[in-house]
Computed example of a mutant assay.
Amino acid sequence: MLTRRHLLASALAAPAILRFGTAEAATTLKISHQFPGGTIDKGDFRDRLVRKFAAEISKRSGGELAAEVYPNSSLMKTKAQFSAMRKGALDMSLFPLPYAGGEVPETNIGLMPGLVANYDQGLSWKNKPVGKALTDLLADKGIVILTWVWQAGGVASRSRPLIAPEDAKGLKVRGGSREMDMVLQKAGAAVLSLPSNEIYAAMQTGACDAGITSSTSLISFRLEEVSKSLTSGAGQSYWFMLEPLLMSKDVFDKLPKKHQDILTSVGTEMEAFGRQGAQDDDKGVAKVYEKAGAKVSELDAATVGKWRDIARDTAWKDYSARSANCANLMKLAADVT
């Protein structure tokens, strides 16, 4: 016998809720992400992006589509979101793609150190063979990409700056992907695998000496409070992560075409906002850390080249050897200059 408690639990877990009004059903999508929540006008740009997306799909559908945003991993744990979307148990997430690497190894192409050098290069993937190959692969795994979002990254450190590979020796570092970890290990660091929303606690306790993450996360997760130095990725960076707005293909396919068209068109339009938000934070992160008393350093082309050389000899080769799909994605991505 179903109890009231069971019914409530089922309602909370169910994706793509149909709300019935006097006219016709409205589909309410749940969007989950790990980043701090704010408003449509203030806060982490990734949270703002999904709120703008939600407002726009509601407007264009005349209220037939709606979305509820769940920041701070408040709906489910960070790394569980990808699997949940594949199963149709979660509608959407703005998700760091390499977090899915344990489940779908090919997704680690989304944080391949030294592979993407700037926003133009990363965002051009969408309309190049590498973008089609990645889109097709994700679709086969039950995932639709709605918005391509790339972010440059930097390093927050509890002690000495981590700029060049030789600075990594003896440090415990969070890299953000299996491949970045390989590069750090080659440079002499010990590595930690954890999502960006757990870096603060790890650095606070001393479990982590330095965290590499996006400029936005360096700000939003207040890492300046536990850091004495910052290496900014504003000018150049060897660390670019693909953090797209993703949707469950199972949920997407069940929607009428007019709603699918709204979702894809609004998703594409959000890409300019995502790029601007990422680049604004690339510029703003130094001010945040300087104000907190941290030493700020920048990367030059020669230093980025050192990291890329290590990556080419370790992570790139390892990734390409994992499967035919990985080898193909790596080749296609390397062709984009």
Results as ranks from 00 to 15, higher is better:
residue 17 I to K: 05
residue 17 I to N: 00
residue 20 F to M: 01
residue 27 T to A: 02
residue 33 H to R: 03
residue 34 Q to T: 15
residue 38 G to Y: 01
residue 47 D to R: 01
residue 48 R to V: 02
residue 55 A to K: 06
residue 57 I to P: 02
residue 58 S to H: 06
residue 62 G to K: 00
residue 70 Y to A: 03
residue 71 P to N: 02
residue 74 S to Q: 08
residue 81 Q to T: 12
residue 82 F to I: 07
residue 84 A to S: 13
residue 85 M to K: 06
residue 117 A to H: 14
residue 120 D to E: 13
residue 121 Q to V: 09
residue 126 K to Q: 10
residue 128 K to V: 03
residue 130 V to P: 07
residue 135 T to H: 11
residue 135 T to W: 08
residue 139 A to I: 12
residue 147 T to M: 00
residue 149 V to N: 14
residue 153 G to D: 02
residue 156 A to L: 08
residue 159 S to L: 14
residue 159 S to H: 15
residue 159 S to M: 12
residue 165 P to D: 04
residue 168 A to W: 14
residue 168 A to P: 10
residue 173 V to Y: 10
residue 174 R to S: 15
residue 176 G to Q: 04
residue 178 R to S: 15
residue 185 Q to W: 08
residue 187 A to M: 02
residue 196 S to K: 11
residue 197 N to Y: 11
residue 202 A to N: 12
residue 207 A to I: 12
residue 208 C to N: 14
residue 209 D to S: 12
residue 218 L to C: 10
residue 219 I to Q: 11
residue 222 R to M: 04
residue 231 T to F: 00
residue 238 Y to K: 10
residue 244 P to F: 08
residue 245 L to D: 04
residue 257 K to N: 12
residue 259 H to M: 15
residue 276 Q to H: 13
residue 279 Q to D: 13
residue 295 K to C: 01
residue 297 S to R: 07
residue 303 T to D: 03
residue 304 V to Y: 07
residue 305 G to A: 13
residue 310 I to K: 00
residue 312 R to F: 11
residue 317 K to E: 06
residue 332 L to S: 08
residue 333 A to F: 09
